[in-house]
């Protein structure tokens, strides 16, 4: 999931300007991802990963880095699996 997301950020959000970002880079704090970028990232998560993120979960803590986004998404996936049981 991390790799896929990094590729998306590199290609679509940064337009392939390709400095290469890492899992722990603070992509929002350091300005890599702006507000339009956040919207695009959410579209990607919904369309390509099939997870809908409720607005109240789109927070700085959850979206600090690619690592934290993926950790949040995994937590959500477990939660909804449990919910389905």
């Amino acid at each position: 999931m991390e790799e896929q997301m990094i590729r998306f950020i590199d290609d679509v959000i940064l337009g392939g300007s390709g400095h290469g970002i890492s899992v722990d880079d603070e992509i929002v704090l350091n300005g890599t991802v702006d507000s339009l970028g956040v919207t695009r990232l959410l579209d990607f998560i919904e369309d390509s990963l099939g997870v809908a993120v409720p607005a109240e979960d789109v927070t700085i803590e959850n979206f600090q880095s690619v690592g934290s986004i993926c950790a949040y998404l995994r937590g959500r996936a477990e939660y909804s699996e449990q919910g389905a049981r």
Binding site: G31, D34, S35, G37, A55, V58, T59, E61
Partner: peptide
Amino acid sequence: PEEYTRFPASLAK
């Protein structure tokens, strides 16, 4: 802080 303007839920808090 700038990052709050990108995260409405954090901004509201």
